[in-house]
Computed example of a mutant assay.
Amino acid sequence: MEEKSVNKTNSNGYTFMFAIIMVLVVASVLAFTATSLQPRQYENVRQEKMQSILNTIGIETDRPGAQALYDQYITEEIAIREDGSIAEDVDAFAVDLAKEIKMEDSEQIYPLYVANYEGEEYYIIPLRGNGLWNAIFGYISLEDDINSIKGATFDHLGETPGLGAQITKAWFRESFVGKKIFDETGKLEGVSVVKGGASTDHEVDAISGATITGDGVSTMISERLRHYIPYFQEQTDMKLTE
């Protein structure tokens, strides 16, 4: 009887080995691509951060133009400790707020950016807090009275489109302009996102259907700003309290 030959390319072993080789090849290509793109991704994040900081003082720019304008108008990057002292050995721009807020207050670093634009000085403070589904974040700038808001930017990682995600819209951001963060006695009031219409210098109109996100914005602003009070007390003659 003639023995039938077996086609090795149809065997289970060959199929299994081919699959392993393809997985390794694809993984290698993906790893190489990711590594190659890291510098570009890092630079994009840097430029977007500069864009957001500049936007709070009224400077609009695209990503490629952000570095030059940032260097022109941001005069200081300050890393502040909880007691108001300056951490001279820390790069304020490199501080990752997502990591910092997980630490104890006394261990955190609080970045502050000082800008000089059109003859006026501004203080820009990074923000980060919790929305409905995930983190919300942004920047808020104060005029040189350390009370009046010059501008604000907000973003999110997962708020509901058409509802909480509207914190990124111009109309919402612009509603913070001119609002006050301290009352007449120097007590920190922050800015509250309220339903039914804003009626004071410490309130802005809420986004319909996005109560939890709005509350998150209110809490985020007050929680972040309070950490800067010791520094501003040290640098000015203002009588400020939490």
Score class of each variant (00 low, 15 high):
residue 3 E to P: 11
residue 42 Y to K: 15
residue 98 A to E: 06
residue 234 E to K: 12
residue 31 A to M: 12
residue 176 F to I: 02
residue 160 T to H: 09
residue 14 Y to Q: 03
residue 142 L to V: 00
residue 168 T to V: 14
residue 159 E to V: 07
residue 163 L to Q: 12
residue 198 A to G: 08
residue 102 K to L: 14
residue 241 T to S: 14
residue 191 V to W: 10
residue 236 T to D: 13
residue 228 Y to K: 05
residue 162 G to E: 08
residue 55 N to M: 12
residue 210 A to V: 11
residue 177 V to D: 09
residue 161 P to C: 11
residue 159 E to N: 05
residue 29 V to M: 11
residue 93 F to P: 02
residue 152 A to D: 00
residue 77 E to H: 14
residue 181 I to K: 00
residue 128 R to E: 12
residue 166 Q to R: 13
residue 148 S to A: 06
residue 113 Y to C: 00
residue 100 E to L: 01
residue 228 Y to W: 03
residue 153 T to F: 04
residue 227 H to G: 07
residue 129 G to K: 11
residue 101 I to D: 03
residue 57 I to H: 02
residue 70 Y to F: 13
residue 67 Q to L: 12
residue 4 K to N: 15
residue 185 T to G: 05
residue 210 A to S: 12
residue 216 G to R: 04
residue 136 I to D: 00
residue 151 G to S: 01
residue 185 T to Y: 07
residue 137 F to M: 07
residue 142 L to Y: 00
residue 81 R to M: 15
residue 122 Y to R: 10
residue 54 L to S: 10
residue 231 Y to T: 11
residue 9 T to G: 00
residue 226 R to H: 05
residue 79 A to V: 08
residue 93 F to C: 07
residue 192 S to A: 13
residue 119 G to A: 07
residue 160 T to G: 09
residue 146 I to V: 14
residue 140 I to C: 02
residue 112 L to Y: 06
residue 2 E to H: 13
residue 119 G to R: 11
residue 223 E to G: 08
residue 199 S to E: 15
residue 232 F to H: 05
residue 47 Q to S: 11
residue 240 L to M: 07
residue 27 A to L: 14
residue 102 K to W: 07
residue 46 R to Q: 10
residue 227 H to D: 05
residue 149 I to R: 02
residue 172 F to A: 01
residue 203 E to R: 04
residue 194 V to Y: 12
residue 123 Y to M: 03
residue 29 V to F: 09
residue 223 E to F: 08
residue 198 A to S: 14
residue 237 D to S: 14
residue 228 Y to T: 06
residue 33 T to Y: 12
residue 158 G to C: 09
residue 17 M to V: 13
residue 87 A to Q: 09
residue 202 H to R: 09
residue 19 A to H: 05
residue 29 V to W: 02
residue 168 T to P: 06
residue 94 A to R: 11
residue 47 Q to Y: 09
residue 6 V to W: 14
residue 212 I to N: 02
residue 51 Q to Y: 10
residue 83 D to I: 01
residue 139 Y to F: 14
residue 33 T to W: 13
residue 143 E to K: 12
residue 134 N to S: 13
residue 148 S to N: 12
residue 150 K to P: 02
residue 103 M to W: 04
residue 84 G to H: 01
residue 52 S to K: 12
residue 63 R to T: 10
residue 11 S to H: 10
residue 198 A to P: 08
residue 210 A to W: 09
residue 8 K to N: 08
residue 37 L to R: 10
residue 1 M to A: 14
residue 9 T to A: 03
residue 149 I to M: 07
residue 146 I to D: 00
residue 161 P to Y: 10
residue 223 E to Y: 08
residue 66 A to G: 04
residue 214 G to A: 13
residue 79 A to I: 05
residue 30 L to C: 15
residue 135 A to D: 09
residue 176 F to G: 00
residue 208 S to Y: 01
residue 183 D to Y: 01
residue 90 V to G: 00
residue 57 I to V: 15
residue 218 S to W: 03
residue 42 Y to L: 14
residue 76 E to C: 07
residue 111 P to T: 01
residue 57 I to K: 01
residue 33 T to A: 15
residue 166 Q to L: 14
